[in-house]
Structure formats: structure tokens, C-alpha cells
Design a protein around this nucleic acid. Sequence first.
DNA 1: AAGACGATCCTG
DNA 2: AGGATCGTCTTT
Length: 168
Amino acid sequence: MINRLSSDFFLRDVLEVAPDLIGKKLVRQFQDGRIEKYRITETEAYRGAEDLACHASKGRTQRTEVMFGEGGTVYVYLIYGQYWLLNLVTGPESDASAVLIRGIEGFSGPGRVGRELQLDRSFYGESLITSSRIWVEDAEPVAEIRTSKRIGIDYAGEWKDKLWRFFI
DNA sequence: AAGACGATCCTG
DNA sequence: AGGATCGTCTTT
């Protein structure tokens, strides 16, 4: 039975969505029609324009635009010239928050996730609600979710110490 | 038009 | 510890 998460799931505070995504199935249909379902094992919350670790804190630009829109879409960006990182936009319009998918079962690290899923710039703004190539399906909740500080954002002042990384 | 740098990963 | 590699944003 198909149980794709609907927009209600994403239209909540990123601090609720990020831990709730742990254990859910990230589904990808590749160009050859092959469908793979990956259990999400690690996420990070980036919470709006005030969060100095969130790209949206740099303002509304062509790059960050999608985060300012309604939740339920994909925000991808290229880092270090090589890795497409996958983020799921959350919250209502103008709440510029998103969840970074840092790990899926068998693939640890956001760069590896993007490589496995064969992401590219064409995924920018893709709807998780209607897309036929990427979406999220419900799954059994995970009993124990661990937290820690977010990775690689030491520049973010007081925001760097928030325990907004969630993992199994 | 040019320069700095990043929510990373791999190699040595 | 350092290099790869390029889009985005800032500064000229």
C-alpha cells in the first residue's frame, strides 16, 4: 500500500518535521523506472531566516527562494563544486526552513546521499507531493532518536550549539 | 569582471 | 592535512 506523506506533514515547524523524518522512507524513481526506497537515518533542521546556519539567513535570493515558499518541496544546492545536498522544505509560506537529509540507510553523509540519489539542479523546487521521481512514504516510528549539534556550521554564532541534528 | 568560500568527501 | 571543483554571493 502506498502511503506517501502529504503536505500536512511538511507544513509544520521544522523542529517537528526533522525528527519525524527519521525512519521514514525516501523514495526515488530513477530514469530507467527503477524504484528504490531508502530509510532515513539522519537529518538536520535549518530554521528560518534568523538561524545563522540556515542559507535563508543570507536573505531571499535565487538560491534560497524555494525555502521561502510553502513546505513540501525540494531544496538542492551544490557544495564544494561536487555534491548536491538534499533538503526538504517545511512550514508555511515565508517561513524559510528546511530539513537537510544527512543520511539514508547504507549511505552516510549528505554528499553521498545526493550521489546515490543521482540528484542535480533539476530537482530544485520539485514537489514531494506530486513528483514521480522523488517523495517520502510513511513508516514505523523510530523509538530512540538521538540528537547532537549540527555539523559544519561553526560560523553560526549562538546557533551552532542547537541540538538540531537527529539520528538513529 | 574578479575573488572568496562553502550544511563534503577522498586520498595520502 | 590538503586538494578537488564550481555556483553563489560580495566587492570592484
